[in-house]
């Protein structure tokens, strides 16, 4: 079943609700949703209802932490930079951690990511935001990409 038919059959709100928290809504699928909404709003009364449901779903807590809402999953600040997964400061901390990992890899000879993150969390030199990112990555290993 194509995405378009699924959305039409299920309704937008259910479609969003059924999508996994960690699965990303691609830009094309988002565009499709918007097109359908605009079509529906022209054609029938249900369209407005669906648009309302869509917006409510986007604004819900669950949607806030998903990339669709474009807010940082750690502090709920807006994400400014294109292609970033976190707010500016958490993104910087994330990049620092990634960079540090390559140095740790050379230093200790391929440590496990989880060991590295745990160790980083414990060190007193680690900054607060870097610690937050390390904790988040430990809880969400899929975010380590």
């Amino acid at each position: 079943m194509s995405e378009k038919t699924r959305i039409e059959k299920m309704g937008i709100a259910e479609y969003i609700a059924s999508s996994n928290r960690d699965s990303l809504l691609t830009l094309t699928s988002l565009q499709k949703i918007v097109t359908i909404i605009s079509k529906n709003s022209k054609n029938n009364r249900d369209g407005k209802e669906q648009e309302f449901l869509f917006q409510r779903a986007v604004l819900s807590d669950r949607a806030r932490s998903s990339p669709l809402s474009m807010t940082c999953p750690l502090c709920h600040e807006e994400i400014d930079a294109a292609g970033a997964d976190y707010c500016a400061s958490h993104q910087r901390a994330f990049e620092n951690i990634k960079r540090a990992f390559s140095t740790w890899t050379v230093a200790y000879g391929s440590p496990r990511v989880s060991d590295f993150l745990e160790q980083v969390q414990k060190l007193p030199q680690t900054g607060l935001k870097a610690k937050e990112i390390a904790r988040f990555l430990l809880e969400n290993p899929l975010r380590w990409k």
Binding site: R92, A93, A100, A107, V120, Q125, A130
Partner: peptide, 12 residues
């Protein structure tokens, strides 16, 4: 402050 908050130490 940002530099300190985002700092990740490396070993030597």
């Amino acid at each position: 402050e940002e530099e300190i908050q985002c700092f990740t130490p490396t070993p030597f």
